[in-house]
Design a protein around this nucleic acid. Sequence first.
DNA 1: GTCTATATAGCGATAGAC
DNA 2: GTCTATCGCTATATAGAC
Lengths: 221, 221
Amino acid sequence: MVSNATSASRHKTAAKPAGPGRPKDLGKRAAILDAAKRLFANEGFAGASMDEIAAEAGVSKLTVYSHFGDKEALFAAAVRAKCEEMLPDDLFQQELKGPLRSQLIAIASGFFALISSDEAISTHRMMIAPGNGDDPLRKLFWEAGPQRTHDALGAFLQARVQAGELDIADTSRATQQFFALIKGEMHSRMICGLYTKPLRGDVNAHIEATVDMFLRAYAPR
Amino acid sequence: MVSNATSASRHKTAAKPAGPGRPKDLGKRAAILDAAKRLFANEGFAGASMDEIAAEAGVSKLTVYSHFGDKEALFAAAVRAKCEEMLPDDLFQQELKGPLRSQLIAIASGFFALISSDEAISTHRMMIAPGNGDDPLRKLFWEAGPQRTHDALGAFLQARVQAGELDIADTSRATQQFFALIKGEMHSRMICGLYTKPLRGDVNAHIEATVDMFLRAYAPR
DNA sequence: GTCTATATAGCGATAGAC
DNA sequence: GTCTATCGCTATATAGAC
């Protein structure tokens, strides 16, 4: 009689294939996660309240607590979800033909668009904010974002070096330089919230000038 | 008899030159501002409480409220104080002799040290955090920090171009590129809180490689 | 002018009804 | 499994004593 209810309740979820064990969760869970991602990004960890999140998701607060344990767990889940969805990573899968300059401009344009979206800016701010998120979470964010794009461009540049189209001694350093240049002052201003809307013409001019500068430094003599 | 105490008490502060009108304020006010700068930077606007600030400053909470109106005003004052003190700006006042490469390395080293200090990183995080600070405050921060260093380096590069030591079409853009390169991935990692302690050797290698890359792109042929 | 003690409000987390 | 109502705690801001 003292019993273990765990083994008794297990057979309920034994038939796993989309069984009606708890089919209603997913919609609400997704709505909660969505609201959490938006509110945490816009108001920070301390700024966003569980009441707001529950109201925004259209559920009650206890539903939030039943799906995720507490506020920190919800924050971690929101960050993880953001990291996963923020990886199109087809930056380098696209058709890369034509002269090297055009290819680099295409890569740079994709990268800049990726980091310039309101979503990316908000996420970046949220991760950076003091007190928001612990160390493993920050590491996760870094590996999901900057690390992957870095590796992809590194491989691209390495191939071009071996093809004799570029003269780069340290490919990893050149990769960092390329991304730093593309981000540039515009990204800093956006992160700082000075202007959220850079003109499209300015962006194109910035990208072309940056690629040209990069090529002047690393073109074979 | 009904009186107006205001006019009666005014003659107390009439002798303004450091008169004993309220000489004890300044020490406490400075202590409060100092504590506010530190705590806001480390824990964010919502994270830092007025109790913590008062305790850290060694005064009571009401003293804080008597000096600064409310929490937002104290935050704004802390940011303004940070902006003012974070301007050594003798980055370019120093002895700049020798070859151009050495001068650029000196400038880059000073700039990197400026933005790498724990203080600068904390302030940067505080300003960027979502919800912290309003727009005029962010503008103030930008003009006190990035804007001034940008202008200083821009003038330096412009002079070198006219001296025939550099071949730069757009000096302003080159200035942005230089700072973006120097910040580089290291600064992003520090802002993200991944490692707070970059090795000194790595920093020097990074700076020298960056200056060399910059010079390869902009050296006269 | 400064401190101790308190009013008021909001948030995170939970108990009980359905 | 979900909702309404509530507890416990903390933080901002203030009232009264010295």
